[in-house]
Amino acid sequence: MEVVIVPSADEAGRVVADIVAGALATGARTLGLATGSSPVGAYRELARRHREEGLSFAGIRAFLLDEYVGLAASHPQSYARVIRADFVDHVDLASDDVHGPDGATDDVLEKARRYDAHLRAAGPLDVQILGTGANGHLGFNEPGSSLASRTRVKTLTQQTRRDNARFFPEGEQVPQHVITQGLGTILEARHLVLVATGRTKAAAVAAAVEGPVSAFCPASVLQLHPHATVVVDELAARRLQLADYYRHVAAKKLPGQGF
C-alpha cells in the first residue's frame, strides 16, 4: 500500500486524476467509479482534462460500486443519476458503457448476484476508485462485513444514514438498504485507489492504513491488496503515525516509478 499525503482536497483530486489518466494511457479499458464527496474533485479534474486536453474515455467500460435499494434510476440521489451529474455527462463515456446494480427492482437479491457475475465476466477492473465513510465503510460494506464478501444487499448503519441525509431533501428518508460490491469483489480490481479528504475521515484513514485488518474497519482490507494507493489531504492524514515516512517515500520515488 502506498499512502500519498497532499496539502488539499483539490490536490488529492489531481493525484487521483493522474492515476486514472496514466492507466488509460497504458491500455486500461475498465474503470470502477465511486460516488460520495471525496471522489468529486477527481471527477472534476478528469472532466477538465477531457474538455481542455483531450483526455478520452471513449470505449471505456465503467462500473459503479453500489446503489440504493428502492430508488429509481431517475431519482436525483440514485447513484446512477449522481455519477452522471458528477462525471459521466462531462466526458465522452457512452451511456451504455456505464453499468451499475439495479436497486429499483422487486428482486434485489437476484439483481445483486447478477451484477457480481457481470463484474466477473468483465474481467478485473483496471482501476477502482474508492472512498470511505467516517466509520471505515468501503463501498457500502459496513463494519462487520466479511472480508471475502461478494456483491449483495446490505443494511446501512444509522451513522451512514445520518451522514448521507444531507444529500436528500428535508423530510425525505435515506433508504435503509443498498446493493454494494462486496469486499472480496472490490479486491479483484488490479489497482485500488482510495481518496479521503477532511477532518471527519482522519480516524477511518488511520484505522484503514495503520490498524489491524479487521471487519470492524472494512477499508482496512486494502492492506491485503498488492496494488493499493491511498490519497489523503492533510486533514484526513492527521492521525497517521507514519505520516513523515509516507512523505519521505513520495519524495524519494525513482524516475518512472509512478503510483
Rank of each mutant, 00 (worst) to 15 (best):
L235F: 14
F63R: 01
L93H: 05
H225D: 01
V69Q: 00
V16I: 09
E53I: 04
R51T: 14
L46H: 11
A42F: 03
L55P: 02
E53T: 08
G36N: 06
N141T: 05
V232T: 05
P218W: 01
Q159V: 14
Q181M: 14
S220W: 04
T155P: 00
T155Y: 05
E234K: 13
D116K: 11
I83P: 00
A251P: 08
Q159Y: 10
L235C: 08
L192F: 14
V91H: 01
L187M: 14
S214Q: 07
E52Y: 04
V178I: 13
A237P: 04
T229P: 09
A28E: 12
V15W: 01
Q173G: 11
H90A: 13
R113V: 11
Y68P: 01
R238P: 00
R84M: 08
A189P: 04
I186W: 10
F140T: 01
E188Q: 14
L46D: 10
G22W: 11
L93S: 10
Q223W: 02
D116G: 15
G70A: 05
S146V: 03
L187V: 04
Q223M: 00
F63V: 07
A122S: 12
Q173M: 13
V205T: 10
G133P: 03
G13Y: 00
R61Q: 09
E2N: 12
L242P: 12
P255D: 10
G211Q: 07
Q158C: 06
A204G: 06
A237N: 07
A62E: 05
A94R: 15
T160N: 03
A134D: 12
I186M: 11
E67H: 06
H225Y: 10
L109M: 10
I19S: 00
A219T: 06
G59R: 05
S74G: 09
V193S: 05
Q257S: 12
H248T: 15
L222I: 08
L235I: 08
G182P: 03
S74T: 15
L242A: 15
F167Q: 07
V82H: 02
V193C: 09
T160G: 01
E52T: 12
D163I: 12
G198V: 11
Y246M: 10
Y68D: 02
L147P: 02
V20T: 02
L130Q: 03
G139S: 13
R161F: 03
V249L: 14
V20G: 00
A219Q: 03
S214W: 09
V205G: 01
L235K: 14
T180S: 14
C217P: 03
P212S: 10
V6G: 00
V195H: 04
Q159S: 11
V91M: 06
D163V: 09
A58S: 14
A196D: 11
E170N: 08
D10T: 13
F57Q: 06
D244I: 07
V69T: 02
A236R: 04
T155L: 09
H50P: 03
P175W: 12
Y68S: 00
F140C: 08
A196H: 14
Y246H: 15
A28P: 13
A228S: 13
L64K: 07
H191R: 13
K252R: 15
A21T: 13
L130M: 05
T180D: 02
E234V: 11
E172P: 12
R61L: 03
V20K: 00
A228G: 08
R61G: 02
